[in-house]
């Protein structure tokens, strides 16, 4: 079985700042992987590399057996054209910390925009799918609401529906609950939990240790641009081996 995400020595630098210093990681189809770690550890950057929002400087990164951002012919790598990158992104859904819903469109319009504009689906088919997806995230009655009329949790659920509308084979979540009021976190995690149960392959950058422990198939702890520790959630969160993981977890878990 080809791994859904396979990273081998992935490096990324912004100017003189080396953000990723050789990330090795594998995500199997149907698996949920949670990436945890202190801010500035490069976890969001790595997530953004997976759908080529950031360009990888060194190493290999592939999604479903295909290189991200490049085409290989013999020994040579060819950079993908803009529309080829766009084409590959269709299959990868992404949910952002700050939702990034389109404020000039209603919830339903947000969801059906890409299926119509990118995939060329008919309006009727897209609306049907969009309505079903809004129901799935518990917002069937909010189709005509604009993002500003929705709470943070509702906006993030619309954002999840929007990503799902492209029928992705992989979903990336970049700290999806970090911008939410505490009482709204649960509704978003609930939708994600259901998604994981339905067998979606997910990579989740998160600070929700409870969610990671409960839902993830594997947990990856990143710090200073490297993967410090990875394994099944019980091991990494309950009995971390590495000092840095222990220090981080004791800081995070003390808050609860």
């Amino acid at each position: 079985m080809t791994a859904m995400v396979k990273a081998e020595g992935v490096c990324k630098r912004f100017g003189n700042l080396e953000v990723l210093k050789g990330i090795d990681l594998e995500v199997q189809p149907g698996e949920v992987t949670c990436i945890i770690g202190p801010s500035g550890s490069g976890k969001s950057t790595f997530l953004r590399c997976i759908n080529h929002l950031e360009k990888v400087d060194a190493g290999r990164l592939s999604v479903d057996g295909e290189l991200v951002g490049y085409r290989q012919k013999g020994d040579k790598l060819y950079e993908l054209k803009e529309n080829e990158v766009a084409h590959k992104r269709r299959e990868i859904g992404m949910v952002f910390q700050r939702f990034n819903l389109f404020p000039h469109m209603t919830a339903l319009e947000n969801v059906i925009e890409a299926p119509i504009q990118v995939k060329g689906e008919s309006k009727a088919a897209a609306r049907e799918l969009g309505t079903a997806l809004l129901h799935q995230v518990g917002l069937g009655d909010k189709a005509k609401s604009y993002p500003r009329q929705l709470s943070g949790g509702q906006q993030q659920r619309v954002a999840i529906a929007r990503a799902l509308a492209m029928r992705p084979k992989l979903m990336l979540f970049d700290e999806p609950t970090s911008a939410l009021d505490p009482e709204l976190v649960g509704e978003v995690l609930g939708v994600m939990r259901q998604l994981a149960k339905d067998g979606m392959t997910m990579v989740v950058v998160t600070h929700e240790m409870e969610f990671a422990r409960e839902v993830a198939d594997s947990v990856v702890f990143m710090d200073g641009g490297v993967v410090v520790e990875a394994g099944n959630p019980e091991d990494v969160i309950r009995s971390p081996k590495h000092e840095r993981t222990k220090a981080f977890l004791s800081r995070v878990l003390r808050k609860d």
Binding site: N51, L53, E82, N83, A86, H87, K88, R89, R90, I92, G93, M94, F96, R98, N100, L101, F102, E113, A114, Q117, V118, A159, R162, A163, M166
Partner: peptide, 17 residues
Amino acid sequence: DEGQTEAAGALGMTRGK
């Protein structure tokens, strides 16, 4: 907001669109 371009890009929309 830059996030709008990113969100559209992540959905597979081209620059022009």
